[in-house]
Amino acid sequence: MQEDMHYYGTYAMARAAGLEVKHARVIAYAAQYVDDSTANDSEVHKDGGMFQTIATAHTNSEAIENAVADHVEQRHVWVPFHFFPGGKGDTLSKKLTCVKDSELAQKMVKNHIRHAVSVKNEYGLTLMGIMAHVYADTFSHYGFSGVSSRNNKVDGTSFELDVKDPEVKAYIMNKFSSFLTKYTPRFIIKNYRNIASRGASIATGALGHGAVGTYPDRPFLRWRFNFKKDNRDSGWRDNPATFLEACEKLHAAFRDYAEKAGISKKPVPFDSIKGKVDEILRLESAKEGRIKAWIEAISSGELFEIEDYEALHFSKHDWEQQKDDFEYIEHSHEMKKKEVYQFHQAAIYHRDYTLKNLLPKHGIVVL
């Protein structure tokens, strides 16, 4: 999923679930920041304290190439944060494949809600945001795994896209080509549907959904293809339907958290907004247009009772600035009050819980 869902959709679901702006903003910011925290850095304060960050994503070509070569990096980042293993199948490769709303994902959600309540005055909100990102991605990334695997490779001649607007269809096909160009050596693509997909698959080492570009992340898209292995038909992937499921599940998780944390305020039943959410998800538009649709629905009060101020603008630089300010604060321990510090607390908790606790209990040892 992209920013329209990870920030704006998440924010809308959190607000509708009964969370106030100040809480929903942090949750939504953390959900989107999972895609923006790309560095494993450490900064030492003049008093000797240290602030260390962890990468929860890689967004540039050099980092992608490193991830392909480094299987440890794949398992630190892609597996726990973007392709949560479904635990199904008789081989490790199959167990690592992401499954929509899997039993393991549900266990993760329940655990994180419980833990977030226990640390609600520390990093509870940022943990809920990370949970929201990981859980939502199971509704878009299912069928692919976060490790290099031949099971991720697809037949580039088999794509079928169900898009009504021809301009939008051309736009997303061009985006696919741009995705390929970004992560492969430069060469002229003479056969878009075949060579492009093959190139992307090679470039990412059959990692994640690289061979299908951003098709899984576009909420309005219905599409299908064949996996290369055994020429297996993916069947129609109905993104609007699965994204709507994700919204409903997030709403339920946020409502559960708000009630257990004692911060619930005027929750709205999901059924009362389901039609409007579905309408937004089915909008055939580039990301900017989809973000605008969320903002307009929120601002008009169609999803919940709005407050004087709603957090309707995301910029990753807000938390990046908090990182940069570390060296200038008087005492290093003051950093623990910063949202970016709490995000990395939550990220480490989620990664360790997933890789060292939950997955091993289900026969999946990847790190």
Rank of each mutant, 00 (worst) to 15 (best):
Lys164Arg: 01
Asn191His: 09
Phe187Gln: 14
Glu122Thr: 06
Val147Thr: 08
Gln106His: 15
Ala200Lys: 00
Lys110Gln: 15
Phe187His: 03
Phe144Asp: 12
Ser177Asp: 07
Leu180Ile: 15
Val109Lys: 10
Ser118Phe: 04
Lys100Cys: 02
Ile202His: 10
Gly146Arg: 05
Ile202Phe: 11
Gly129Asn: 10
Ala196Tyr: 09
Asp155Glu: 01
Pro185Ser: 09
Asn152Tyr: 05
Lys153Trp: 11
Phe144Met: 02
Lys120Met: 02
Phe159Glu: 03
Phe139Arg: 06
Val119Ile: 00
Asn194Arg: 15
Lys120Asp: 09
His115Gly: 01
Val147Arg: 13
Tyr142Ala: 11
Phe187Ser: 08
Arg186Pro: 14
Val134Phe: 07
Tyr135Leu: 12
Ile189Pro: 02
Lys153Ile: 04
Val134Asn: 12
Leu180Gly: 15
Phe159Ala: 11
Gly143Val: 03
Asn151Thr: 14
His112Asn: 15
Arg186Tyr: 08
Arg114Met: 10
Lys175Asn: 09
Gly143Trp: 13
Val99Lys: 04
Asp165Glu: 06
Thr181Cys: 00
Phe187Asn: 05
Glu160Gln: 03
Ala203Asp: 08
Lys107His: 04
Met173Ser: 05
Leu127Asp: 03
Met108Ala: 07
Pro185His: 12
Asp162Thr: 01
Lys175His: 10
Met131Pro: 06
